[in-house]
Nucleic acid binder design. Structure first.
Lengths: 218, 218
DNA sequence: CAACTTACGCCACTCAGTGGCATATTACAA
DNA sequence: TTGTAATATGCCACTGAGTGGCGTAAGTTG
């Protein structure tokens, strides 16, 4: 199937835009292949850039850093999460809304994303620089969600800590659920259960465990 | 008072060790001065290293990165927090223990630390690279606390999400409470209230608001 | 005052990331 | 079709963080 990647949806865009999408996708796909084969630290940007036949200068017009291109699949998920949450009708506890939007975003990703996401998470698991970058990205997503909450509620998060806490809780649950997911996926006894389903389950369990964790005693 | 810094407690250590402490402290103090005066990005490592009359090679034997030396005051707090929590007797809800240990650590820091910590937080506030690094440091502290919890409870955090959630909650509350602290401190109307007291109050409020945030509705 | 250990300085090097400017390519209008 | 504006790319020189290796200086111990 080659390095097809995320199918480059060319929804009748002007030629220039289609080319940009192609370049971007080529960078993402090639990066993941190279990093998977020879480790993140074992591949220089110049190598990646040569493989795709693009100048280094151009690379930095698409991505802010070497880490960014490596975790592109995660960024895609966060974008979907933000969209999902922005679209959602406010109703009931916000923590539930944050939870539901996250699960919906996960369920809405396509099959090719799943393949790339699994490979990405494996790579992150064995690359300290990427672990840090991935963690930071989840924190930035958290802050964007809080901004969204602010506009929805018309409240400044500086006046109500609860907004920020909601961000910490939602992405915190994600971080807990996602933590050893890929590692556990490897020697998963119950085959047939999709990898994504098990991730969703872990995240749901994390959300469920929040109240109990508050009162966990010695 | 010069660049005295954290008083370099030379508790009758061998000469070599005292020299190392002095060098380390000189790096920390000078870094904070230079970064405060001319911004983190406006000072190169070579400049810092020349000011302290130490080779760059030596610098990296003391600190892992340029960011590390800038947020040394935070690292000190985290070390105190870890010590405090390790010393604490397990009793009652763990979240309370985590909270108490954090507050105790804060209260236990000396006056010179407070001065440096305030300057550091201001610097962090206007330096994206340091914001990221600071966030990551809090996250790593969180993981160390979870390890401590694991040994205390004899439970692997992979088997019980609640341990990791406790880490997220404790440091999450810290992040929320500390967020706009220095900025707010500037135009604080109520003078007399110490800066540290207001930080502690903010963190306490964040911990208090956790239950309410769970049920916050539209 | 030796013999050992440990920290330091120096130097050359890698590599991510940037600024500036010339060039190529696409978009658009006549 | 052709001319022109807009924009993406390439090239090149450069900065600055971080590393490896090795010789030297200083502290430690008998």
């Amino acid at each position: 199937m080659g390095a097809s990647g995320a199918a480059v949806d060319a929804g009748r865009l002007p030629l220039r835009e289609r080319k940009k999408l192609r370049t971007r996708q080529a960078l993402v796909d090639t990066a993941l292949e190279l990093f998977t084969a020879r480790e993140f630290d074992g591949v220089t940007l110049d190598e990646l850039v040569d493989s795709v036949e693009v100048s280094k200068r151009t690379f930095f017009r698409y991505f802010a850093s070497k880490e960014d291109v490596a975790i592109a699949a995660e960024a895609q998920l966060w974008q979907a999460y933000l969209d999902e949450f922005a679209r959602a009708e406010p109703d009931g506890p916000f923590l539930t809304a944050l939870r539901t939007a996250l699960i919906s975003a996960l369920e809405g990703m396509d099959a090719d994303w799943e393949r790339r996401f699994i490979a990405t998470r494996r790579l992150i698991g064995r690359t300290p620089a990427l672990r840090d970058h991935s963690t930071l990205t989840s924190f930035k997503t958290q802050e964007l969600l809080v901004s969204e909450l602010e506009t929805t509620l018309g409240v400044d998060s500086r006046d109500d800590v609860r907004l920020r806490l909601l961000g910490e809780l939602a992405l915190g649950a994600w971080r807990c659920g996602a933590k050893n997911w890929v590692r556990a996926e490897r020697h998963s006894t119950r085959r047939g259960t999709g990898a994504r389903a098990s991730l969703i389950q872990r995240v749901e369990e994390a959300f469920d465990a929040i109240p109990a964790s508050l009162t966990l005693c010695a």
